[in-house]
Design a protein around this nucleic acid. Structure first.
Lengths: 126, 126
DNA sequence: TTAGTTGCAAAAGGTTTGCCGTTTT
DNA sequence: AAAACGGCAAACCTTTTGCAACTAA
């Protein structure tokens, strides 16, 4: 038989879509429990896995941190993480300039970019 | 008292410096054991931690993979990982062009970039 | 009815820590 | 001799899996 629509799946997607930044599995669990109190962490992981395969969500893998999840379908983007407040700002307009970085004969298929620094709220800039 | 010079530390550094690409903790252990057969994984981790603090080595954190370690003191660089053969090619000449990506008022302090694709050996290019 | 799902608990994989005996200085 | 250090095993954390009970269709 085919895939079922369960309260748990709906809750996970609702959490992901209702939050402005990517979330870790544990955070998703906490928020999903406000909707379906009995949902377990194992279920969250299983649902995330399924959603990833369907590309309904995407993973954000900051170096050295646990994976974060966000709704899929967004256009190509990267993140700027503020070291002061921890907030992750989406950055778009990523250049194809990267192509110039690889030697002749190399085929660049994909890339991952993370920016770190201080956001305008934290620097006091306006 | 101050830091000691042990065979284990020497072995870990020797492994790291003698290898062309970054290595994972488990790989470092395997190779270090050829020098000091009794060295343990816990010791490798403790030594790596100490070397990191002194910045004698650096970590390479590919998204979704275990941390890799390389000798420190290299100039700013990134990696191109070939999806066919898995080899990691060092890429330098990273642009400050990134600065144009962040909004006004944001202070860009650091960045992490990973390139993925196929290397020239694997494409058959010459 | 019944195959996909869920919860729970156990397992796994990687990294860290406590304890105590060993080694460098 | 003493402070560091190393080995071993246990602890930790996050993610995965086995299994019996549950539930959407």
């Amino acid at each position: 038989m085919s895939e079922r629509n369960t309260r748990q799946k709906a809750a996970v997607m609702e959490v992901l879509e209702g939050f402005p930044t990517p979330l870790a599995a544990a955070q998703i669990l906490a928020r999903a429990r406000q909707i379906v109190p009995t949902i377990s962490l194992a279920t969250v992981y299983r649902i995330l896995k399924g959603l990833l395969e369907k590309e309904a969500i995407a993973v954000v893998q900051l170096p050295g941190e646990v994976p974060l999840y966000e709704p899929g379908g967004k256009s190509h983007h990267h993140y700027f993480r503020c070291r002061q407040c921890g907030f992750m700002y989406e950055v778009s307009g990523c250049m194809k300039l990267l192509k110039g970085l690889v030697p002749r004969g190399f085929k660049l298929e994909d890339h991952e970019l993370f920016l770190f620094g201080t956001c305008s709220s934290c620097t006091g800039s306006r």
